[in-house]
Amino acid sequence: MAKIWVYAEVHEGQLDPPALELLTKARDLGDAEAVVFGAGAKEAATKLGEYGASVVHASEDATFDDYIAQPHAHALFELIGQHSPDLVLFPNTYDSRDIAGRLSAKTGSTLMGNATDVLSVDKAQTSIFGGTQLVDVDLEGSPKLVLVRPKSFEPSASGGSATVQDVTVDLPDEVKKAKRVERHEEQSSGPKLDAAPVVVSGGRGLQEPDNFKLLEELAQLLGGAVGATRAVVDAGWVPYAMQIGQTGITVKPGVYIAIGISGATQHMVGMKGAKKIIAINKDEEAPIFSIADIGVVGDALKIVPQLIEEVKNRKG
């Protein structure tokens, strides 16, 4: 049976959920194992086992938390030499992109980025042109390397448990050159954007940063979180953590409300998986309407305050 590895990230001691999505897929394709580096690795191993990893290669070494990409690529390459996996799946995140990129140079495998599905041990799929075309790619090299977009698979536990194997790889000074010296978190209240049942999202059509307060009020009423387009993030209206789309996060809420958003392909790839989409835009030609379940053509600054009142009335 093919041996499939899932690279799992831990941040501040917490397991990052995409690993569980990947394991759910990996166990359908072969014998699933996980690799996890940094403080919290051992604890994460339990959860990884529950989602289908038979073995978890774990190291608690803080070097992995403090330094960027190099120690991870180095250790992975050593482990690959010892255990010969056929395929390694990574979440398409900041850190994993860096690690997988370096690993590709070491193993000489092509690296497939932005995958939205893994079809078999040697074939993965991605979507292009705003998700209108699906591209199947033959994977090359040993092992094969794929970065998968978060939320591509629905995680489900298998009820298994993993054997934990300690990783014993030397980390030379050459791999300790880019060091995190301070960490800053941008706190937000309410549910986390990528887990919220409702996302209220705003774009340049909101005219000015202050108007995002309206979205916050609406989101709070609906038990949701606020998202944004890259246009307003680049303009400095809201923090990057709120960016939805190709370069931001992917959301799949029950309801997505797009307000003053044109619907660029790079935005749509991050939200078109929503169950229901509502759009408000003053331009009836805006592409966002082509994927909306209900659309209202009009001025967001007029409609949103009315909507807040209508919602309050219905909540009674």
Binding site: E284, F289, S290, I291, A292, D293, I294, G295, V297, I303
Partner: peptide
């Protein structure tokens, strides 16, 4: 695509 309405005051 679903239904798209012109806002006539009842959009909200």
């Amino acid at each position: 695509a679903g239904e798209v309405f012109e806002d006539d005051g009842t959009g909200a």
